[in-house]
Design a protein around this nucleic acid. Sequence first.
DNA 1: AATGAATGAGTGTTCATTCAT
DNA 2: CATGAATGAACACTCATTCAT
Lengths: 204, 204, 204, 204
Amino acid sequence: MSLRKKKSEIIKKEKRNLFIISALSVFEEKGFNNTRIKDITKRANTSVGNLYNYFKSKEEIFEVIISGIAELMISKFKELFVYFKDNKIPPIYAVKNLFRGYARIFKAKKETFLIFFEQMGGINTKYRAKRNKIIDNFTKEVEKIIIKLLEFGARPQNPKISARVWTSTVLGVFTWWIRSDFEPEEEELVNNLTAFLSRGTMTK
Amino acid sequence: MSLRKKKSEIIKKEKRNLFIISALSVFEEKGFNNTRIKDITKRANTSVGNLYNYFKSKEEIFEVIISGIAELMISKFKELFVYFKDNKIPPIYAVKNLFRGYARIFKAKKETFLIFFEQMGGINTKYRAKRNKIIDNFTKEVEKIIIKLLEFGARPQNPKISARVWTSTVLGVFTWWIRSDFEPEEEELVNNLTAFLSRGTMTK
Amino acid sequence: MSLRKKKSEIIKKEKRNLFIISALSVFEEKGFNNTRIKDITKRANTSVGNLYNYFKSKEEIFEVIISGIAELMISKFKELFVYFKDNKIPPIYAVKNLFRGYARIFKAKKETFLIFFEQMGGINTKYRAKRNKIIDNFTKEVEKIIIKLLEFGARPQNPKISARVWTSTVLGVFTWWIRSDFEPEEEELVNNLTAFLSRGTMTK
Amino acid sequence: MSLRKKKSEIIKKEKRNLFIISALSVFEEKGFNNTRIKDITKRANTSVGNLYNYFKSKEEIFEVIISGIAELMISKFKELFVYFKDNKIPPIYAVKNLFRGYARIFKAKKETFLIFFEQMGGINTKYRAKRNKIIDNFTKEVEKIIIKLLEFGARPQNPKISARVWTSTVLGVFTWWIRSDFEPEEEELVNNLTAFLSRGTMTK
DNA sequence: AATGAATGAGTGTTCATTCAT
DNA sequence: CATGAATGAACACTCATTCAT
C-alpha cells in the first residue's frame, strides 16, 4: 500500500473514531431513541450525510459501541482460574485484583457501561435480549468459580444464586460508582467489595 | 352520589384497569418505544380513540404503571426498624422475612419490575433519572440499617458500599428470578440470599 | 355484516378509489418518480398520513393502477377466435370490432395507458421488465391469430414479425390517439387501421 | 494550437467518451433514476468528482447520449425523396434499403434506442415531451412520403394514421428486435417489414 | 362512551454536487 | 486532472393525538 493511501486510511479511521465517540456521548446523554443523527454529526463537527460514509445506519454505530463489551466483562476472570490449576484457592489479593480490574474497566469505558446497564434493555427487544445474554454469560463464568470454591470447601450454597449475587453486585455497584463520579475511592471500594463477597461466599 | 353514578364509576375504573393491564403486558413485551397505541387497544379489545377517554397520553399510562413502585420497594424495610427501637439486632428470621417479602412483591408485580429494572432507563432521560432516584432512595433505606448494624458491632465497612451491594443484589437477583420463571424455589432463594448478605455484612 | 358496517365499507372503498384517481392523474402528469406523496394527498383533499391507512406504500398505489392492464389488453382478442372454431376466417367487420374495442378501452383508461406505454419502462428495472412482459404476452396472442390465418391461406410471412407489427401498431397508434385528444375520429381511425393491417397480413 | 495542446484535447475527448459509454451502459441497465453517479464512474474506472470535470450534471450526460437521436431517425428518409423528384415511386428495393438502414442504426445504437423508446418517457416531464416531439417529427417525415404516394395513386387513406402506423412499427419492431438479440435475421426482418408496410400502404 | 379515519410534525437515509488536497 | 470526503436538501413513511360520527 502506498504511503499516501496508508495516511488516508489512518485519517479515515480517526474520523470513524470521532463519530463513535460523539455518538457514545450523545447516546449516554439522550438515550438511543432520543438521539438524532444530527446530534451526533453536530458533535462531530460534520454533516448528516457524511456519517453514512462511515456507518450504514444509526444501529450500526450502536452495535460498534456495544461490541466488545461481552469479552471485556469476562476477560478478568481468566486470571482466577490459574490458581485452580495448581490446586489452590485464589488468595485474597487475587480477588482484590479481580475487582481492581473491573474498577479500571468501568472507569475506562464509563459511558459504554452506563448505556449497557441502564439503557440497552429499553431500546428494543433485540437489544434487551442481547443485554440479558451478556449478563447471563458473565454469570456463567462466575458460577464456574463458585463451583470450584465449593470443591475446596466453601460454605454450602446454590452456586447459581451466589453467582447471580456476584454479577448483580459487580454490575450494580460499579455502575453506581461511575455514575457518582468515582466516589468512594477505588481502593476503598475494592477492599469493601472483596471483603463482602468473600465472606458471603466462603466459610472463613 | 347516586347508585347509578356509583356503578358507572366502578365500570369506568375497571375499563381503566383493563387498559393498564394491557399496556403493561405490551410494554413488557415490546418495550415502551416500540409499543404502538394500537397494540394496547387491540389487547384491550377496544379502539385507539377510546384510550384517550381514560388517559391523556401514552406517557400517562406508563406513569401510572410505574407509580407506586418506589413505595413498594421501601415498604418492606420498615419492619426491620422495629427491632432497633428495642435495642436489638434483627434476628435471622426477620431478615429472611424481608427477602421473602421481596420475593412476593416481585412475583406479584413481575412485569412492572422487569420494565422498571430492564427498560425504564432506556426510554428517555426523564425516566432514567426517575429510575435512578428510586434506586438511590431504596439504597438510602438500606444504608440506615447498615449504619444501625455497625452501631451494634457489625464488621467495619463503608455503609454506602454495603448498602449498594444489598440494593444491587435485591434488584439483580430478583429480576433474574422472575425472568427465569421463578426458578430456583422461593425458599431456597430466600435462604441463600439471607445467608450471603448476612455473612457479608456481619462478623458472625 | 351490519348495515352500519356495510356502509362504512362502501365509504372506505370510495375513499380508496379517490386516492387511486388522484394518484393516477398526478403520475400521468409528473411521472412516478417525480410525484410526491403530498401531491397525491393534496389532490385527494386529505393528509399525507391518511394515504397510508389505505395503501402500504407509494409503489402499492402504482401496482393497483397498473394491475388489470394485462388482462384488459388481451381481452379483446378472444372474440376473434370464435370464428376459427367454425373453420372460418374472421370477416372484416369482426376485425373492425376488434379495433373499435381497443379504441374504447384506451379512451376509458386514457391515463393508465399513457403511464403504461410512455412511462412505466423508465421508473425502474422491475417495471420495465413487467411492461415488456405484458407487451410480449399481448404479442403472443396476436401471433396465434396470425398462425391461424396462415393456415387459412394468408400471405406467407414470419408470424412473429407480423404479430409484433400489430402490437406496435395498436400500442403506438392508440397511445398517440389519446395523447392527441381523440383526433382523428374513432370511426376513421378504426377503418384505416383495419384496412392497413388486413392488407398487410392477408393476400386479399 | 500547439501539438501538445492538440494531444491533450484528444485525450480529454477520449475520457469524455469513456464517461458517455459508461453512463450509457448503466442507464440502459438500471434506468436513469436508479443510476448513481458512482455507478458510472466505477464503470469508467475513475472517481465521482472527476465526472464533474467533464459534465456539469447527471442530466448533461443524458442529454449528450440522447442528442443526435432525432437527426439519426429522420436521416434515412431523405433517400426516398430522390425518387419523387424524378416523378417516380420508390421501387421496392428502395424501401427495403430504408428498413435495412434502420436495422443498422438500431443495431449500432442499441442501448441509446432502448433508453429512448423504453425509458425516456418515464424519467421526467421534460424528457417525456422531448421523446414525444422526436417521435412526432419522425412521423411528419413519414407523412410527407405517404402524401406523395397518394398523389401517385396509393390506396386512399388518412396519411396521418398511416404515418403513425409506420412510426409505431419501426420503433416498436426494431426495439423488440434489439431487445431479443437481433433475432430474427436482419434480412428476414427487413423483407417482412417491407412487404407488410408496402401492402398496407399501396394498392398493389 | 366508542370508533377508526384524519392529521401533520418528525426522522433516518439517500445522493447529486462541491471542494480541499 | 483526479480523488473521495463533505454537504444538506429532499422524501417516504410513522404514529401519537384529535375529532366527526
